[in-house]
Design a protein around this nucleic acid. Structure first.
Lengths: 259, 259
DNA sequence: TAGTGGTCTAGACCACTTC
DNA sequence: AAGTGGTCTAGACCACTAA
């Protein structure tokens, strides 16, 4: 079914390997033959065999480890995310927070954690449109990278109107203070209770800096999420941009068919 | 900000080109210098310059055309899709249908159109779970590729319980008859009015056959959509799998924050 | 027909991992 | 120290495009 150009030796080799992986002949996490072995076996140069590996790498099928070998990529545990993750009970109570464990210094990073950086910046076109303000106006930017079991899963950058979050934990200059109890909680205390959310998703290949930031393997796409949060009166109180490693998430939405 | 390994000449060249593209110095649709020119200018081999192009290609930045040159990929017109596209007024009326233009023979393909293929197949695990039947049970499969202005945008394959669609247009053996008025319309006539939809999205790199089917450029991810449609009583009446070219769609959902 | 991108061989060096 | 993947040069042939 899948036709392979018989003149392209690298594709041929890649195709053969892909089949062996798909059939389970080489299991997930398993090691491929070395490039030298592949080269010998197919009577090609090492460069050509290497190009076959390079193809599979850029398609997200394998991950080469220099000095060790080429391994079949294991499928990440996938997290199914839906509106449920914003449920009030997760942030309206004052008592609990995953990352507010007040114990030893080392335990902070253990399961789920996030680095944070807060700054005043000029609103770009997207932020301005979402928040209904003018381009270049000052907004509060709260950037964070969320880590799970040591591996970064996504980045999320929120924007607020300065007036909405003035004097709150969000703009607290002390490191680690910002949004400790979550941005939604703070907004609620300000009398701006989040009520509706609009999420816009689109997938693309990562830019080089995103690749570094999220420690993405080659051939892994990302999903960019734009979230606009509105209060009861329909006013946008937060706009957020997130970059998610595609293989780690499934996005789920349920809705009624409109008239 | 973006660090580039100074020992990797191909990356260097790619980085420089990427910047020129980002800055608009080389516009969208514009032509890059030839690989030979790049090679001379950077004092590297043609193979190395070619590898730089290959990098940008696999990242979806450029599209090489053999014999002509390397061109900056134009961003496709993006379609914003939300629950609105399922609105009843689009399919509950009997009169209109985009692809049922009864005019000349040539006009059929002009704007939006789709090829269709209907078959009885055995349900795989996903289909079985979604429709609440047993794996291997016979289901009606309706596969289609949707084209817009000559270019395929996505494929969509629906599955129905045979009992739900027996004797309807969906299983009509005459080519072009199946689902002429849309699957939802037919289900409604069968007394199975679609009421709620659950969509699950995830992004990944395309498999080789998907790449051919949708005529995807290298470096273009796809979004796989699983749609489960339910009737009033909550029974699943359709399960569909779609493969969408990532760059052509933005997925939008609005919902209330749950308690 | 001249110029383009794509691919390949042959041989080499490097950085890294593993033992 | 031996083996691994990554990268590069130098030179070649091919298929395709455009004038």
């Amino acid at each position: 079914m899948t036709d392979v150009d018989p003149r392209n030796r690298a594709e041929q080799i890649a195709h053969e390997l892909r089949q062996k992986i798909a059939s389970g002949s080489i299991p997930a996490g398993g090691k491929l033959p070395t490039v030298r072995e592949l080269a010998d076996r197919h009577h090609v140069t090492r460069a050509t065999a290497g190009r076959a590996i390079s193809l599979l790498t850029s398609q997200g099928v394998v991950t080469p480890r220099t000095g060790s070998g080429v391994y079949v990529r294991e499928s990440h545990p996938v997290r199914r995310v839906g509106p449920e993750r914003y449920a009030r009970r997760h942030w309206e109570c004052v008592t609990v927070d995953v990352s507010s464990d007040p114990q030893g210094t080392e335990t902070v990073q253990q399961d789920g954690s996030q680095t944070q950086a807060v700054a005043y910046v000029a609103a770009d076109a997207q932020v301005a449109e979402a928040l209904g303000i003018e381009v270049g106006a000052t907004v509060v930017e709260r950037a964070r990278i969320v880590t799970r079991k040591g591996a970064p899963t996504h980045s999320m950058t929120s924007y607020y109107r300065p007036g909405d979050v003035e004097g709150t934990e969000i703009v607290d200059p002390r490191p680690g203070m910002a949004g400790r109890r979550g941005g939604f909680h703070v907004l609620t205390e300000q009398g701006l209770r989040p009520v509706t959310i609009t999420e816009e998703l689109h997938a693309r290949m990562p830019k080089p800096d995103e690749l570094h930031e999220l420690e993405l393997p080659a051939g892994e796409p990302i999903v960019e999420v734009h979230r606009t949060t509105r209060a009861e009166d329909g006013r946008a109180i937060e706009f957020a941009r997130g970059i998610h490693a595609a293989s780690r998430f499934v996005w789920a939405y349920t809705f009624e068919i409109p008239d």
